[in-house]
Nucleic acid binder design. Structure first.
Length: 802
RNA sequence: GCCCGGGUGGCGAAACGGCAGACGCAUCGGACUUAAAAUCCGAAGGGGUGUUAAAACCCCGUGCGGGUUCAAAUCCCGCCCCGGGCACCA
C-alpha cells in the first residue's frame, strides 16, 4: 500500500508536543488544597510481549480526554500509569530460554511505555509504578504481613490440580474440560492436597456486599459481585449418625426438615473416611479425577453411592440413609445436606433415580415444589406459611441446641499462593520451634533469588525450593534454623493496591503518606475492562477494607465510580486474534494517521461502554476531519489564515452551540456526540470566507482534550505561549443560543402535516389559531371532528381529530 | 437453566415520550484536473402518485405480537434473536 500523502504534519507535531509535555512535566500532579482534586485511574496493563492492543487506548483515551477537560475546568487532576508486570508468560519464557523474567519484563515495559507515550496521554510519568520493582513489592509484602498479623492469612492443605506429566501444579485454567493438562496434553491430572496460603476474604463478605450500595458502578458489575459473594440465609442443623457422630448440614429451608428422606455427603467430606466400603472408595477416587466442568456442566445425570450408614433426623428421630454424591460440594455450607426431594429439584432428580422416598411437607404445587407454601405433616410447624415455619423451627432447634440460624456465602477464602517463581515472595519463615514467623518489616523487600533454572522442581515444590541458599535462613524469632516460604503471591496481589502507591510512589518510609492519601482518595473515576468485574475489583476492595480497619486509609471503598469500556472487535466483527488475522496494531495506525486521529476515531466509534467493530475507513474519516481543521487555520504552506474579522451572528451561534454540546457531552463521557458537534462546527466554518480568531480560538480549546497535539500546535501558531493544558475552558453564552424564531411541527393525529416558523415567544392561543387555520391541517381534518389540541411550546401542535 | 446488556438505513451510530436516521463511513452526481488522487459542492431509509424534468404530495418503516398515550425507537406486557457473566451453592 502506497504511503498516503499527509493531510497535515502530524508526524512532526505529535512527537514535538509529546516531548514538550514530558520535558516540562506539564501533567505532574501536586497536592493543592486550593483546588478541587480529581483522581482518574486506568486499569494498568500487563505488559505482554505482544505489545499494546487497540483495546487499551480506548479506555486510556476516554480518561485522558476527561482529565484534560477537567484540568481546563480548574480541577487538580491525578492521572497515573504503571505496570502489572508479574505474570506467567515471562516465567514460561524463562523456563524455555533461561532468560531472567525481569529482563523480559523490562523490555516489554519499555515497549508499552513507548507505545502509550506515542498516543499523547497526559499521565504524570513521575508516578509510574511497576509491581515487580522491589521498592514496590516491598509494600505488597508489607500489606501481606498486616493481613497475616490480623489473622487474615493462614495455611491449609487444600486440593490443587497436579499434573504427573509436568510434575507441577496447574492453575484452574490450565486444566482442560476433558481433564487433560492444557500445557502438554498429559492425562495424569488430578487434585491433590497441598499446603497453601489462603486469605480470609470471607470474613469481609458481609461488608463487601453491603458497601456495594455506596459506589457508583454499573449495575451489572455490582450484580456480578453480589452473585459471587452469594449470601444466603438459613440454618445449620445437627444430625447424628448411628454411632453418635455429629453430621452438620446447612439448609435454607429448615421448614422442610420433616421432608428429609436421606442425607448426602460430598465425596471429600471427612466423615466419608469412616465408611470403609469399596463402593464408596471407588466413587471417591473417581470423583477426585473429575474436573469441575465435568462435575457441573457435562454430568447432567446424577451419580452417588449408599454408604450403608444411617443418620437420625433430630426433628422426628427417623432413621434416614446416608449417601455420597458429587452433586454436593465440599466448599459450600458444611459439605453435607439433608435431602428433601419433594422440595428441591436436585434432590428430586436424585431420589427419582435411586428410588428414594419423596415426602411432601409444603403445600402449594406440583413436585418438586420449591416455592413457598403451607407446611404439612411437619409436627410443630404444620399449618404455618413458609416464612413463619422457618422462624419457628429455627427457634426450636436453637432451644434444643440442635442447630442455629446461619448465613452462608458462596464466596470462598482466597487461595493466595502460587507454585511459581515470578511473583512476590511471601515473607514468611518456617521454623521448627516457632512455626510460621513473619519476616521483620525492616528486612523488606524480600527479593527473589537469582536462579539458573526456573522450571518446577517436580516434587510439588515451587521453583524457589531449589534455591537452597535462599531458602535456608535464620528464624527471625529464635535465631534457629529456618526455611523461607517458597510459594509466591498471585498476580492479583500487586494490582490490589497500586492506586494507593500512585499517590506517593517514592515514599521509602510508608506505602503512602497519610496526608496525601487523605487528599487524593477515593478514586473518582476508574475505567477498565469488564473482565475484571469480579476478581480484581473484589480483591482490591477486600485489601482496602483491611487497610481501612487498620487505619492506613481513610475511605471504606477505593473506587467511587467505575466504567467498563466496551470491546473493540476486528473489521470482521470477530474478536481480534492472531488466529483470525484481524489484529490492528496501534503502532501502524499512529504511523499512518497519527495519534490524534487514532484517539478521535476510537471515541467516535460509538458509546464508550459498547462493543464495536474496527473500521479503517472510519478511522480515515476522522483523519480527514483533522485535515479539515488544519486547513481552517493554515494554507498549504502552513501559513496562518486566521484574521481578526467579526464573525457573523449565525457562526457565533454555531460556536456557542458547540461549546455547550462539547461541554455537556464531555462531562458525561459521551465523546462520540461531542465529536459530531465539532464536525458540524467545522463544516459550517469551512463554507465561509472568514477565518475569525474569535471563532477559531475557542474551538481549539474545545478540541484540545480530543486531539491534544494538533490543538497545542494550533494554539502556538495562533501566537500563544504553550501550553494550553491549563487554559480556562470556553464558556457559552445562553443569550447567543436563543433563537428568535422556531420551527413548530403541526401534526394531525400524530402525523406531521406542516411546519411553521413562528416567534419563540408566540402565545399558545395564537399558535393554536395558526395551526387550525392552516391549509394542510384543514385538508386533513376535513369531515372530522376536532377533539383535542395539544400544544408543546417551542416544539409542536398536535390536533386529535376523528 | 438463572442474571445482566443489546437488536434503528448498505455499515458505525444519533434521538431515550414530541419532525426517526444528526455526525461519520461506504455509494452516486457535480466542480477542479490532460487524467487520477486529494480537495470542495451536492444527493441519498423503502415504496408509490406525479411530471419533459423538477417541485409537490401520499403510504410504509426502529427484531416480532399486543397495550398505554393526542403522540412510542423511547413506557408497560408477552415472545424471538445476538453478546457477556454465573452455573448442581443446598
Amino acid at each position: 500500500m502506497p504511503e498516503l500523502r499527509k493531510k497535515y504534519p502530524f508526524d512532526v507535531i505529535e512527537p514535538k508536543w509529546q516531548q514538550h509535555w514530558l520535558a516540562n512535566k506539564t501533567f505532574a500532579a501536586r497536592e493543592d488544597t486550593g483546588k478541587q482534586k480529581l483522581y482518574v485511574l486506568d486499569m494498568f496493563p500487563y505488559p505482554s510481549g505482544a505489545g499494546l492492543h487497540v483495546g487499551h487506548p480506548e479506555g486510556y483515551t476516554a480518561t485522558d480526554i476527561y482529565c484534560r477537560f477537567k484540568r481546563m475546568r480548574g480541577f487538580n487532576v491525578l492521572h497515573p500509569m504503571g505496570w502489572d508486570a508479574f505474570g506467567l508468560p515471562a516465567e514460561q519464557y524463562a523456563i524455555d530460554t533461561g532468560t531472567h523474567p525481569a529482563i523480559t519484563t523490562c523490555k516489554n515495559i519499555d515497549t508499552f511505555r513507548r507505545q502509550i507515550q506515542s498516543l499523547g496521554f497526559s499521565y504524570d510519568w513521575d508516578r509510574e509504578v511497576d509491581t515487580t520493582d522491589p521498592e514496590y513489592f516491598k509494600w505488597t509484602q508489607w500489606i501481606f504481613l498486616q493481613l497475616y498479623k490480623k489473622g487474615l492469612a493462614y495455611e491449609a492443605e487444600i486440593p490443587v490440580w497436579w499434573c504427573d506429566g509436568c510434575k507441577a501444579v496447574l492453575a484452574n485454567e490450565e486444566v482442560n474440560a476433558d481433564g487433560t493438562c492444557d500445557r502438554k496434553g498429559h492425562k495424569e491430572v488430578y487434585r491433590r492436597p497441598l499446603r497453601q496460603w489462603i486469605l480470609r476474604i470471607t470474613k469481609y463478605a458481609e461488608r463487601l456486599l453491603a458497601d456495594l450500595d455506596q459506589v457508583n458502578w454499573p449495575e451489572s458489575i455490582k450484580e456480578q459481585q453480589r452473585n459471587w459473594i452469594g449470601r444466603s440465609e438459613g440454618a445449620e442443623v445437627d444430625f447424628k449418625t448411628e454411632d453418635g457422630a455429629t453430621l452438620r448440614v446447612f439448609t435454607t429451608r429448615p421448614d422442610t426438615l420433616f421432608g428429609a428422606t436421606y442425607m448426602v455427603l460430598a465425596p471429600e467430606h471427612p466423615l466419608v473416611e469412616k465408611f470403609k466400603n469399596p463402593a464408596v472408595e471407588a466413587y471417591r477416587t473417581a470423583a477426585a479425577k473429575k474436573s469441575e466442568l465435568e462435575r457441573t456442566q457435562l454430568e447432567k445425570e446424577k451419580t452417588g453411592v449408599f454408604t450403608g450408614a444411617y443418620a437420625i433426623n433430630p426433628v422426628n428421630n427417623e432413621k434416614i440413609p446416608i449417601w455420597v454424591a458429587d452433586y454436593v460440594m465440599m466448599g459450600y455450607g458444611t459439605g453435607a445436606i439433608m435431602a428433601v426431594p419433594a422440595h428441591d429439584t436436585r434432590d428430586f432428580e436424585f431420589a427419582t433415580k435411586f428410588g428414594l422416598e419423596i415426602r411432601p411437607v409444603v403445600e402449594g404445587g406440583d413436585l418438586p415444589f420449591i416455592g413457598e407454601g403451607t407446611a404439612i405433616n411437619s409436627g410443630l410447624i404444620t399449618g404455618l406459611p413458609t416464612p413463619e415455619a422457618k422462624k419457628k423451627i429455627t427457634a426450636w432447634l436453637e432451644a434444643q441446641k440442635l442447630g442455629k440460624a446461619t448465613v452462608n456465602y458462596k464466596l470462598r477464602d482466597w487461595l493466595f499462593s502460587r507454585q511459581r517463581y515470578w511473583g512476590e515472595p511471601i515473607p514468611i519463615v518456617h521454623c521448627a520451634k516457632c512455626g510460621t514467623v513473619p519476616v521483620p518489616e525492616n528486612e523488606l523487600p524480600l527479593c527473589l533469588p537469582e536462579m539458573k533454572d526456573y522450571s518446577p522442581s517436580g516434587n510439588a515444590e515451587p521453583p524457589l525450593a531449589k534455591a537452597t541458599d535462599w531458602v535456608n535462613c535464620k528464624c527471625p524469632q529464635c535465631g534457629g534454623p529456618g526455611k523461607r516460604e517458597t510459594n509466591t503471591m498471585p498476580q492479583w496481589a500487586g494490582s490490589c493496591w497500586y492506586y494507593l502507591r500512585y499517590i506517593d510512589p517514592q515514599n521509602a518510609g510508608a506505602f503512602v503518606a497519610k496526608a496525601k492519601e487523605k487528599y487524593w482518595m477515593s478514586v473518582d473515576l476508574y475505567v477498565g475492562g469488564a473482565e475484571h468485574a469480579v476478581l480484581h475489583l473484589l480483591y482490591s476492595r477486600f485489601w482496602h477494607k483491611v487497610l481501612f480497619d487498620l487505619g492506613h486509609v481513610s475511605t471504606p471503598e477505593p473506587f467511587m465510580r467505575l466504567i467498563n469500556q466496551g470491546m473493540i472487535l476486528g473489521e470482521d466483527s470477530r474478536k481480534m486474534s492472531k488466529s483470525w488475522g484481524n489484529v490492528i496494531n496501534p503502532d501502524d495506525v499512529v504511523r499512518e494517521f497519527g495519534a490524534d486521529a487514532f484517539r478521535m476515531y476510537e471515541m467516535f466509534m460509538g458509546p464508550l461502554e459498547a462493543t464495536k467493530p474496527w473500521n479503517t475507513q472510519g478511522l480515515e474519516g476522522l483523519y480527514r476531519f483533522l485535515g479539515r481543521v488544519w486547513r481552517l487555520f493554515c494554507d498549504e504552506d502552513g501559513k496562518l489564515l486566521v484574521d481578526d474579522s467579526t464573525p457573523t451572528a449565525a457562526l457565533m451561534k454555531v460556536l456557542h452551540q458547540t461549546i455547550k454540546k462539547v461541554t455537556d457531552d464531555t462531562e458525561v463521557l459521551a465523546f462520540n456526540t461531542a465529536i459530531a458537534q465539532m464536525m458540524i462546527f467545522v463544516n459550517e466554518v469551512t463554507g465561509q470566507e472568514t477565518r475569525s480568531r474569535a471563532l477559531l480560538e475557542p474551538f481549539v480549546l474545545l478540541l484540545a482534550p480530543y486531539a491534544p497535539h494538533l490543538a497545542e500546535e494550533l494554539w502556538e501558531r495562533l501566537g500563544h505561549k504553550p501550553s494550553l493544558a491549563y487554559m480556562p475552558w470556553p464558556q457559552y453564552l445562553e443569550a447567543l443560543l436563543k433563537e428568535s424564531t422556531v420551527q413548530i411541527v403541526v401534526q394531525v393525529n400524530g402525523k406531521v402535516r406542516d411546519r411553521l416558523d413562528v416567534p419563540v415567544d408566540i402565545p399558545k392561543e395564537d399558535l393554536e389559531k395558526l395551526a387550525l387555520t392552516n391549509e394542510k391541517v384543514k385538508e386533513s381534518v376535513a369531515g372530522k371532528q376536532i377533539k383535542k389540541v395539544i400544544i408543546v411550546p417551542g416544539k409542536l401542535v398536535n390536533i386529535a381529530a376523528g
